[in-house]
């Protein structure tokens, strides 16, 4: 059976949801996998709803759309989680920003990864790193791409001017991976 990962990322505008998906997509491309990245689009505004769907496969990708068959769901805030948690298929993984999301009635047919990405990012010195912390957690637990490839993708997506931010982003990825791993200790 060929490999196919369908990753649905959602949050509000400004949380880096789209770039999280793009870094993943770019990294997968660098690993010579097939990949698609589809954004939701509409009247854009900061703080508005933002989501994107990333499909990674080793074969040509047909439908790039995710309905209720995401293998992984990534949710950065409560509104996105409540609206889209059922997009993840039974047996899938849900990564949630536990600083902003509480669920008294969680699904029982998926695996939850509750990562306090805002707290971790703040501890690292920049709340803007929250998406990278999440990406580190997600990529480590869902085994999507080589973690170093995400940094290669960072260079391609954000360009030479932003290369000075690579060390701090690398740390954010590592902290995310660590937090996710600790959940299962």
């Amino acid at each position: 059976m060929s490999r196919i990962d369908r990753i649905f990322c959602a949050g509000f505008g400004g949380q880096g949801v789209m770039s999280m998906g793009q870094l993943l997509a770019y990294a997968a491309m660098l690993e010579e996998l097939e990949v698609t990245w589809c954004p939701s689009y509409g009247p854009e505004m900061r703080g508005g709803e933002a989501n994107c769907s990333v499909t990674i496969s080793d074969e040509r990708i047909g439908s790039p759309l995710i309905n209720n068959d995401a293998t992984v769901g990534v949710f950065m805030n409560g509104a996105a989680y409540n609206k889209f948690k059922n997009k993840v298929q039974p047996g899938g993984k849900i990564f949630m920003n536990s600083d902003l999301i509480e669920d008294s009635n969680p699904r029982t047919d998926v695996t939850y990864y509750k990562i306090p990405v805002n707290s971790i990012a703040t501890r690292l010195g920049k709340i803007q790193l929250a998406n990278m912390v999440m990406l580190g957690a997600l990529n480590d637990q869902a085994h999507l791409v080589n973690q170093d490839m995400l940094l290669e993708a960072f260079k391609k997506v954000f360009g030479a001017a932003k290369e000075k931010y690579i060390p701090i982003n690398k740390e954010a990825l590592a902290e995310g991976a660590k937090a996710a791993a600790e959940m299962f200790k």
């Binding site: 793009q22 997509a25 491309m29 990949v35 698609t36 990245w37 589809c38 954004p39 689009y41 790039p64």
Partner: peptide, 10 residues
């Protein structure tokens, strides 16, 4: 269509 315009692929 709008989807092909908005989506990213290698």
């Amino acid at each position: 269509d709008g989807l092909i315009g908005q989506m990213m692929e290698p």
